[in-house]
């Protein structure tokens, strides 16, 4: 049983899988850039005060803002 969590809450270094993307003006862009349900991602690190997130997904890295990470619902895969 896993508690629902967003990419903004996960522990750095632990791989997760995206389960759902909330509707938001940025949703289309997130999906188009490959951050879509089923995709495995890892939060690598944050900038100071948790403002921006460095994440890794299949062959590439992204920088995203906290509010963008908050619409990505995920579950741990390990």
């Amino acid at each position: 049983m896993t508690t629902p969590l967003t990419l903004a809450d996960v522990q750095p270094g632990r791989p997760v899988r995206i389960t759902h993307v909330e509707e938001h003006p940025s949703t289309g862009r997130l999906l188009a850039m490959g951050l879509r349900p089923g995709q495995r991602v890892t939060l690598v690190r944050r900038t100071a005060f948790g403002a921006s997130y460095y994440i890794h997904a299949e062959y590439q890295q992204f920088g995203i803002r906290r509010d963008e990470a908050e619409i990505l619902w995920v579950e741990y895969t390990d």
Binding site: S26, R29, Y54, F62, G63, I64, R65
Partner: peptide, 11 residues
């Protein structure tokens, strides 16, 4: 225009 960061960090 919505502001966003979401960007690739290319290799």
């Amino acid at each position: 225009e919505p502001g966003y960061l979401l960007m690739e960090l290319p290799d």
